[in-house]
Amino acid sequence: MMKEIIRVFSFYFYQARKTSRTKTFFWLSTAAILMALLIRTYRIAGNWTESGQVIFQNFLMTFFLQFLIVLMALFYGTAIVSEELENRTMPYLTSRPLARPAIILGKFLAYFCLSSLMLLFSVFISYLILNLDSKFSFSSIWTVLSYFLVLLLGLAAYLSFFNFLGVWLKKPVLVGLAFGFGWESIIQYFPGTTQKLSIAHYLKSLLPRYTTSSGKLGFLFIRLEPTRPWLAVLVLSGVVAVFLLLSCALFSYKEYLYEE
């Protein structure tokens, strides 16, 4: 089945680059660079005294972690099945010698890699812009790499969850929006174990050099009661595995009808 996954991956990685969705997300991730430039200018004017690392961390948390990866995962994840139904291209795919789980996993990987590349570009450039005055060292590279790995883990977790919604529901985007920007945001402010019912909680627990209340946006994460890093990684990996398995099982069994 690995070969089949790679075949699906190669077709969709190529095809998805040409879609309007990818073009939109490319410009949206590029917007992060513009925002970083604006923040940098604001800071040079003396309005922001925190270090570049702290500002970047806040920026990462608010723009990338709580907005961009959720939005990317929502539109790519739900599209894995629903775009085939909406564009009526499903028969081209399901009449090929491919195991149905390979279709899901291949498309998941293609969209994950595509989103990751867009993130990689904007995260590293934003980091550089916000830390231009810092001395660069291996530890700086490690820091930004750690941030990026957390984002990738979050992207994979959200993507697999939204993929499951797409396989399961006829109109998954609305439910996905409610989850990604409703549940995931609100539950962060709940104390105790309730906040552990969100993906964002485990991602925030993993952020390196995390400070709970520093920075102008510190009030956003003041309630965080972090989970231990190894457990957070385990939970997030579990989310990816469970929702991918569920998606594969459901897609293998389910029929998809569309209006003719």
Partner: peptide, 17 residues
Amino acid sequence: FWRLGFCPEVDSFYEGL
């Protein structure tokens, strides 16, 4: 599906190809 080819009725294609 190695031995079967299907031409669906719908006039739909992948975007941009």
